[in-house]
Protein backbone atom coordinates (compact mmCIF):
# COMPACT_ATOMS: atom_id res chain seq x y z
CA UNK A 1 0.00 0.00 0.00
CA UNK A 2 2.88 2.34 0.84
CA UNK A 3 6.16 2.04 -1.00
CA UNK A 4 9.26 4.14 -0.68
CA UNK A 5 12.26 3.26 -2.81
CA UNK A 6 15.52 5.15 -2.43
CA UNK A 7 13.76 8.32 -1.33
CA UNK A 8 16.14 11.16 -0.56
CA UNK A 9 15.27 14.64 0.64
CA UNK A 10 17.75 17.39 1.34
CA UNK A 11 17.27 20.81 2.92
CA UNK A 12 20.37 22.66 1.84
CA UNK A 13 23.31 20.78 3.30
CA UNK A 14 21.10 18.73 5.63
CA UNK A 15 20.01 15.34 4.36
CA UNK A 16 16.66 14.73 5.97
CA UNK A 17 16.07 11.40 4.24
CA UNK A 18 18.86 9.27 2.84
CA UNK A 19 17.79 6.63 0.32
CA UNK A 20 14.85 5.52 2.41
CA UNK A 21 13.34 2.26 1.26
CA UNK A 22 10.25 0.96 2.97
CA UNK A 23 7.16 -1.02 2.17
CA UNK A 24 3.96 -1.24 4.19
CA UNK A 25 1.33 -3.74 3.15
CA UNK A 26 -2.44 -3.61 3.45
CA UNK A 27 -3.91 -4.05 6.93
CA UNK A 28 -0.73 -3.11 8.78
CA UNK A 29 -0.36 -0.73 11.68
CA UNK A 30 3.15 0.57 11.17
CA UNK A 31 4.91 2.35 14.02
CA UNK A 32 7.49 4.85 12.88
CA UNK A 33 10.12 5.47 15.52
CA UNK A 34 13.10 7.73 15.60
CA UNK A 35 14.74 10.52 17.55
CA UNK A 36 13.64 14.11 16.97
CA UNK A 37 14.74 15.30 13.55
CA UNK A 38 15.27 11.76 12.28
CA UNK A 39 13.04 12.25 9.22
CA UNK A 40 9.68 10.81 10.31
CA UNK A 41 7.66 13.91 9.55
CA UNK A 42 9.49 14.45 6.27
CA UNK A 43 8.57 10.89 5.23
CA UNK A 44 4.94 11.46 6.11
CA UNK A 45 4.87 14.79 4.30
CA UNK A 46 6.31 13.18 1.20
CA UNK A 47 3.64 10.50 1.31
CA UNK A 48 0.89 13.07 1.78
CA UNK A 49 2.16 15.08 -1.21
CA UNK A 50 3.33 18.03 0.87
CA UNK A 51 7.03 17.69 0.05
CA UNK A 52 8.57 16.61 -3.21
CA UNK A 53 11.37 14.07 -2.80
CA UNK A 54 14.69 14.94 -4.43
CA UNK A 55 15.34 11.36 -5.49
CA UNK A 56 13.61 8.03 -5.39
CA UNK A 57 10.05 6.87 -5.78
CA UNK A 58 7.26 7.18 -3.24
CA UNK A 59 3.94 5.50 -3.93
CA UNK A 60 0.67 5.26 -2.06
CA UNK A 61 -1.74 2.62 -3.32
CA UNK A 62 0.43 2.25 -6.39
CA UNK A 63 0.16 5.96 -7.22
CA UNK A 64 3.25 8.16 -7.52
CA UNK A 65 3.32 11.13 -5.15
CA UNK A 66 4.98 13.26 -7.84
CA UNK A 67 2.23 12.77 -10.39
CA UNK A 68 -0.97 11.61 -8.77
CA UNK A 69 -1.43 14.09 -5.92
CA UNK A 70 -5.19 14.48 -6.38
CA UNK A 71 -5.87 10.75 -6.41
CA UNK A 72 -3.59 10.16 -3.41
CA UNK A 73 -5.25 12.93 -1.41
CA UNK A 74 -8.60 11.18 -1.90
CA UNK A 75 -7.32 7.88 -0.51
CA UNK A 76 -5.16 9.23 2.28
CA UNK A 77 -5.71 10.97 5.59
CA UNK A 78 -2.84 12.92 7.12
CA UNK A 79 -2.82 14.27 10.63
CA UNK A 80 0.18 16.56 11.21
CA UNK A 81 2.08 16.70 14.49
CA UNK A 82 0.99 20.27 15.22
CA UNK A 83 -2.70 20.36 14.62
CA UNK A 84 -4.30 23.70 13.87
CA UNK A 85 -8.05 24.02 13.89
CA UNK A 86 -10.49 26.60 12.56
CA UNK A 87 -11.51 28.18 15.81
CA UNK A 88 -14.49 29.99 14.33
CA UNK A 89 -16.40 26.78 13.55
CA UNK A 90 -18.28 24.27 15.63
CA UNK A 91 -17.15 20.65 15.68
CA UNK A 92 -19.96 19.73 13.31
CA UNK A 93 -19.18 22.58 10.91
CA UNK A 94 -15.51 21.70 11.02
CA UNK A 95 -16.24 18.15 9.92
CA UNK A 96 -18.76 19.36 7.36
CA UNK A 97 -16.08 21.66 6.00
CA UNK A 98 -13.67 18.80 5.42
CA UNK A 99 -16.42 16.48 4.17
CA UNK A 100 -17.21 19.08 1.52
CA UNK A 101 -13.52 19.56 0.79
CA UNK A 102 -13.12 15.82 0.22
CA UNK A 103 -16.17 15.81 -2.01
CA UNK A 104 -18.40 13.68 0.23
CA UNK A 105 -21.89 13.98 -1.36
CA UNK A 106 -24.27 16.21 0.59
CA UNK A 107 -26.74 13.37 1.16
CA UNK A 108 -24.09 11.21 2.79
CA UNK A 109 -22.41 13.91 4.85
CA UNK A 110 -24.71 13.81 7.86
CA UNK A 111 -24.46 10.04 8.26
CA UNK A 112 -20.69 10.09 7.73
CA UNK A 113 -20.15 12.85 10.26
CA UNK A 114 -22.34 11.14 12.82
CA UNK A 115 -20.41 7.92 12.30
CA UNK A 116 -16.96 9.49 12.78
CA UNK A 117 -18.19 11.50 15.75
CA UNK A 118 -19.39 8.29 17.32
CA UNK A 119 -16.17 6.49 16.49
CA UNK A 120 -14.09 9.26 18.04
CA UNK A 121 -16.50 9.69 20.95
CA UNK A 122 -17.20 13.33 20.14
CA UNK A 123 -20.95 13.12 19.52
CA UNK A 124 -21.70 15.12 22.66
CA UNK A 125 -19.39 17.87 21.51
CA UNK A 126 -20.71 18.34 18.01
CA UNK A 127 -22.23 21.74 18.77
CA UNK A 128 -19.24 23.03 20.73
CA UNK A 129 -16.86 25.56 19.21
CA UNK A 130 -13.64 23.89 18.13
CA UNK A 131 -11.45 26.21 20.18
CA UNK A 132 -13.31 25.29 23.35
CA UNK A 133 -12.18 21.66 23.11
CA UNK A 134 -9.37 20.37 25.26
CA UNK A 135 -6.12 19.25 23.64
CA UNK A 136 -7.16 15.61 23.78
CA UNK A 137 -10.49 16.33 22.18
CA UNK A 138 -8.84 18.39 19.47
CA UNK A 139 -6.55 15.43 18.76
CA UNK A 140 -9.61 13.21 18.49
CA UNK A 141 -11.22 15.79 16.23
CA UNK A 142 -8.09 15.60 14.10
CA UNK A 143 -8.56 11.85 13.79
CA UNK A 144 -12.24 12.40 12.96
CA UNK A 145 -11.18 14.83 10.24
CA UNK A 146 -8.84 12.37 8.58
CA UNK A 147 -11.53 9.69 8.69
CA UNK A 148 -14.25 11.82 7.15
CA UNK A 149 -13.64 10.59 3.60
CA UNK A 150 -13.02 6.99 4.69
CA UNK A 151 -9.41 6.82 3.47
CA UNK A 152 -7.58 3.55 3.11
CA UNK A 153 -4.30 4.96 4.36
CA UNK A 154 -3.85 7.03 7.51
CA UNK A 155 -0.66 8.90 8.33
CA UNK A 156 -0.72 10.04 11.94
CA UNK A 157 2.20 12.11 13.14
CA UNK A 158 2.47 11.96 16.92
CA UNK A 159 -1.27 11.50 17.47
CA UNK A 160 -0.84 10.98 21.21
CA UNK A 161 1.50 13.89 21.92
CA UNK A 162 0.32 16.12 24.70
CA UNK A 163 -2.47 13.82 25.77
CA UNK A 164 -3.13 12.83 29.35
CA UNK A 165 -2.96 9.10 30.22
CA UNK A 166 -6.70 8.53 29.86
CA UNK A 167 -6.85 10.28 26.48
CA UNK A 168 -3.78 8.33 25.37
CA UNK A 169 -5.43 5.01 26.20
CA UNK A 170 -8.56 6.12 24.33
CA UNK A 171 -6.50 7.17 21.35
CA UNK A 172 -4.70 3.83 21.35
CA UNK A 173 -7.92 1.86 21.37
CA UNK A 174 -9.28 4.09 18.61
CA UNK A 175 -6.27 3.38 16.42
CA UNK A 176 -6.52 -0.33 17.15
CA UNK A 177 -10.16 -0.17 16.10
CA UNK A 178 -9.12 1.51 12.84
CA UNK A 179 -6.57 -1.23 12.30
CA UNK A 180 -9.28 -3.84 12.76
CA UNK A 181 -11.30 -2.00 10.10
CA UNK A 182 -8.57 -2.92 7.64
CA UNK A 183 -6.98 0.50 7.21
CA UNK A 184 -3.26 1.00 6.77
CA UNK A 185 -1.92 3.13 9.58
CA UNK A 186 1.48 4.75 9.74
CA UNK A 187 1.86 6.15 13.24
CA UNK A 188 4.83 8.03 14.59
CA UNK A 189 5.19 8.35 18.31
CA UNK A 190 7.75 8.79 21.04
CA UNK A 191 5.73 6.63 23.41
CA UNK A 192 7.27 3.34 22.39
CA UNK A 193 5.37 1.13 24.82
CA UNK A 194 2.14 2.19 23.15
CA UNK A 195 3.45 1.42 19.71
CA UNK A 196 4.59 -1.98 20.96
CA UNK A 197 1.06 -2.80 22.07
CA UNK A 198 -0.63 -1.48 18.98
CA UNK A 199 1.58 -1.95 15.94
CA UNK A 200 1.99 -4.98 13.76
CA UNK A 201 5.31 -3.72 12.46
CA UNK A 202 7.74 -0.92 13.14
CA UNK A 203 10.40 1.10 11.39
CA UNK A 204 13.31 2.73 13.17
CA UNK A 205 14.83 5.74 11.49
CA UNK A 206 17.81 7.83 12.47
CA UNK A 207 19.45 10.72 10.65
CA UNK A 208 17.32 10.01 7.61
CA UNK A 209 18.37 6.37 7.35
CA UNK A 210 16.08 3.47 8.02
CA UNK A 211 17.85 1.28 10.54
CA UNK A 212 15.18 -1.33 10.83
CA UNK A 213 11.79 -2.21 9.35
CA UNK A 214 9.86 -5.34 10.21
CA UNK A 215 7.94 -7.02 12.97
CA UNK A 216 8.36 -6.03 16.60
CA UNK A 217 9.40 -9.57 17.56
CA UNK A 218 12.15 -9.50 15.00
CA UNK A 219 13.32 -6.14 16.37
CA UNK A 220 13.51 -7.67 19.82
CA UNK A 221 15.46 -10.62 18.53
CA UNK A 222 17.90 -8.39 16.71
CA UNK A 223 18.49 -6.04 19.55
CA UNK A 224 18.49 -8.65 22.25
CA UNK A 225 21.84 -9.38 23.89
CA UNK A 226 21.74 -12.02 26.55
CA UNK A 227 19.02 -12.37 29.13
CA UNK A 228 19.27 -10.41 32.30
CA UNK A 229 17.97 -11.43 35.70
CA UNK A 230 17.89 -9.52 38.96
CA UNK A 231 18.57 -11.88 41.83
CA UNK A 232 18.09 -10.92 45.46
CA UNK A 233 19.85 -13.03 48.05
CA UNK A 234 18.71 -13.61 51.58
CA UNK A 235 20.58 -11.13 53.79
CA UNK A 236 23.08 -12.91 55.96
CA UNK A 237 26.82 -13.34 55.81
CA UNK A 238 28.46 -10.35 54.09
CA UNK A 239 30.66 -12.58 51.92
CA UNK A 240 27.71 -14.47 50.36
CA UNK A 241 27.23 -12.07 47.42
CA UNK A 242 30.99 -12.18 46.68
CA UNK A 243 30.96 -15.98 46.68
CA UNK A 244 27.85 -16.09 44.50
CA UNK A 245 29.47 -13.69 42.04
CA UNK A 246 32.63 -15.83 41.83
CA UNK A 247 30.59 -19.00 41.33
CA UNK A 248 28.49 -17.40 38.58
CA UNK A 249 31.50 -16.03 36.74
CA UNK A 250 32.96 -19.51 36.48
CA UNK A 251 30.29 -20.13 33.85
CA UNK A 252 31.42 -18.76 30.51
CA UNK A 253 27.82 -18.01 29.55
CA UNK A 254 27.65 -15.23 32.18
CA UNK A 255 28.88 -11.99 30.65
CA UNK A 256 28.60 -9.50 33.48
CA UNK A 257 27.38 -9.08 37.02
CA UNK A 258 26.58 -5.69 38.43
CA UNK A 259 25.85 -4.78 42.00
CA UNK A 260 23.08 -2.60 43.28
CA UNK A 261 24.79 0.04 45.45
CA UNK A 262 21.60 0.44 47.45
CA UNK A 263 21.27 -3.27 48.20
CA UNK A 264 24.46 -5.33 48.68
CA UNK A 265 22.45 -8.59 48.42
CA UNK A 266 21.08 -7.80 44.98
CA UNK A 267 22.88 -8.88 41.80
CA UNK A 268 22.09 -8.15 38.17
CA UNK A 269 23.27 -11.13 36.14
CA UNK A 270 23.68 -10.62 32.40
CA UNK A 271 24.08 -13.68 30.24
CA UNK A 272 25.77 -14.09 26.89
CA UNK A 273 23.44 -14.21 23.88
CA UNK A 274 23.17 -17.46 21.97
CA UNK A 275 26.34 -17.66 19.90
CA UNK A 276 26.52 -17.65 16.18
CA UNK A 277 28.47 -20.90 16.55
CA UNK A 278 25.34 -22.55 17.88
CA UNK A 279 26.12 -22.28 21.61
CA UNK A 280 22.95 -22.29 23.70
CA UNK A 281 21.56 -19.57 25.92
CA UNK A 282 22.24 -20.07 29.64
CA UNK A 283 19.11 -21.46 31.32
CA UNK A 284 17.79 -19.60 34.38
CA UNK A 285 18.03 -22.66 36.63
CA UNK A 286 21.81 -22.64 36.08
CA UNK A 287 21.91 -19.25 37.85
CA UNK A 288 19.92 -20.75 40.71
CA UNK A 289 22.27 -23.71 40.94
CA UNK A 290 25.40 -21.54 40.99
CA UNK A 291 24.06 -19.38 43.81
CA UNK A 292 23.06 -22.43 45.82
CA UNK A 293 26.55 -23.83 45.35
CA UNK A 294 27.97 -20.60 46.74
CA UNK A 295 25.85 -21.03 49.87
CA UNK A 296 23.36 -18.33 49.06
CA UNK A 297 19.59 -18.50 49.23
CA UNK A 298 17.48 -16.74 46.61
CA UNK A 299 14.71 -14.47 47.94
CA UNK A 300 13.52 -13.15 44.56
CA UNK A 301 14.39 -13.91 40.96
CA UNK A 302 13.28 -11.38 38.36
CA UNK A 303 14.00 -12.01 34.66
CA UNK A 304 14.14 -8.67 32.77
CA UNK A 305 11.94 -8.65 29.67
CA UNK A 306 13.26 -6.72 26.68
CA UNK A 307 11.21 -3.67 25.80
CA UNK A 308 10.78 -1.67 22.60
CA UNK A 309 12.74 1.09 24.33
CA UNK A 310 15.68 -1.30 24.67
CA UNK A 311 15.44 -2.31 21.04
CA UNK A 312 15.27 1.33 20.03
CA UNK A 313 18.29 2.28 22.13
CA UNK A 314 20.32 -0.63 20.82
CA UNK A 315 19.45 0.02 17.18
CA UNK A 316 19.98 3.77 17.25
CA UNK A 317 23.08 5.72 18.16
CA UNK A 318 21.36 8.74 19.63
CA UNK A 319 23.06 11.09 17.20
CA UNK A 320 21.33 14.37 16.49
CA UNK A 321 20.58 15.64 13.00
Amino acid sequence: MIELAGVTKRYGSLTALDSLTLSIGAGQIFGFIGPNGAGKTTTMKILSCLIRPDQGVAKVGGLDVRKDGDAIRRMLGYMPDFLGVYDDLTVDEYLQFFAAAFGVPRKKRRATIDAVLQLTDLTEKKRAMVDSLSRGMQQRLGVARVLIHDPQVLLLDEPASGLDPRARIEMRSLLQELGRMGKVLMVSSHILSELAEMCTSIGIIERGKLLYAGSIQDAYARSRGGDKVIVRLEPGAPETPRRAREELLKDARVSRITDDPADPFSLAVEMMPPGADGSARMPHHAVFDAITRAGGRVVSFEPQAIKLEDAFLKLTTGALQ
Binding site: D88, T90, Q96, F97, A100, R106, R127, A128
Partner: peptide, 24 residues
Protein backbone atom coordinates in the same frame (compact mmCIF):
# COMPACT_ATOMS: atom_id res chain seq x y z
CA UNK B 1 -25.35 25.18 28.97
CA UNK B 2 -22.07 26.48 27.52
CA UNK B 3 -22.80 29.77 25.85
CA UNK B 4 -20.67 28.99 22.88
CA UNK B 5 -22.64 25.96 21.77
CA UNK B 6 -24.23 26.80 18.48
CA UNK B 7 -26.45 25.15 15.94
CA UNK B 8 -24.41 24.02 12.98
CA UNK B 9 -24.84 25.74 9.64
CA UNK B 10 -24.97 23.74 6.44
CA UNK B 11 -21.61 23.91 4.68
CA UNK B 12 -21.69 24.53 0.93
CA UNK B 13 -19.91 22.53 -1.73
CA UNK B 14 -17.05 25.02 -1.88
CA UNK B 15 -16.07 24.94 1.78
CA UNK B 16 -13.31 27.56 1.59
CA UNK B 17 -15.65 30.11 0.04
CA UNK B 18 -18.35 29.09 2.52
CA UNK B 19 -16.14 29.66 5.53
CA UNK B 20 -14.59 32.87 4.25
CA UNK B 21 -17.93 34.45 3.47
CA UNK B 22 -19.31 33.60 6.89
CA UNK B 23 -16.52 34.89 9.03
CA UNK B 24 -17.34 37.90 11.12
Amino acid sequence: IPRNDRDAREVGDNPVLWRETRRG
